[in-house]
Design a protein around this nucleic acid. Structure first.
Lengths: 146, 146
DNA sequence: TATTGTTATACTCTATAACTATA
DNA sequence: TATAGTTATAGAGTATAACAATA
């Protein structure tokens, strides 16, 4: 029970390597929608947490405020969100998800579901459920959205 | 059964996000050994597949040959591998793992095990085993080392 | 003076292209 | 001429620092 597990057999190694593979696939597909991974992160955050300022969004995603400018610019150009100047504090821009933004997020969810099916095609229903259950626990424990 | 799963609840999203988190942690810790993630990939490949040329190593890792130069340079400077000129074809450099390289790889494996324990501290033994079992299946299906 | 958003700049990772030496 | 390795260069992604508008 105290043996050294070979590195490739660790959860850390597998999670890292598989995460990288899956992210590359997802990135390629959402590229067809004009989206990059961080865009999807912001769409998800706005969907879950409602309108927030750019700075709040940056903090919520754990990225620099300067990066939020770029991401919001791209989503605004796609019509996925609007910037609304806060009347009470004109320094703040509230990021508001549009119908178009909601539709884009839904298409991302569908894409992810398709990738799930392809990825886990070799697993039986039991393993598939156990995998997503355990990942859900880890996700929650690490502050990821539900 | 045909509902749209919310994006954050998909295996794709969770695997990508958790992979990124875990990789960041692993990267930070192996940094103390003077190693970067790609270095660990090469150490693993050399451990599993024995001495190979730089080009073979690059192909095996799916990276550009020019990147292999950088990675091999760093590992050579650490004394983790040696470059041996092939006498039969003096263009080729065989990358040979040293004892020091084996020791470094073992320390990486220990580090990964520690991270595994921290990461899955909130899971019961059942879920932990189910998770690593399912990940192992996916890893094998995607050509990762065992 | 402090804060929000923005722009300018720099750093990391990695790929492609150009080059050297061998074949 | 073709190939292994190397060096030069470029692009993507993201951070830090400087700046402008507003508080």
């Amino acid at each position: 029970m105290n043996d050294v597990t070979p590195l490739p057999a660790t959860t850390t190694f597998r999670l890292g390597a598989l995460g990288s593979i899956v992210t590359a696939r997802f990135t390629e597909r959402i590229g067809a929608l004009g989206l990059k991974p961080k865009d999807v992160g912001l769409l998800t955050l706005l969907h879950d947490d409602g309108p927030v300022s750019q700075l709040e969004a940056a903090r919520g995603m754990g990225v620099a405020p300067s990066l939020m400018v770029t991401v919001a610019d791209r989503l605004e150009a796609l019509g996925a969100l609007r910037r609304l100047r806060d009347p009470g504090d004109r320094r703040r821009q509230h990021l508001v998800l549009t119908e178009q933004g909601r539709a884009l997020l839904a298409r991302c969810a569908t894409t992810a579901q398709e990738l799930d099916a392809e990825l886990t095609a070799g697993l039986d229903e039991r393993d598939r459920a156990a995998l997503n259950h355990a990942l859900g626990r880890l996700a929650a424990a690490n502050g990821l959205p539900h």
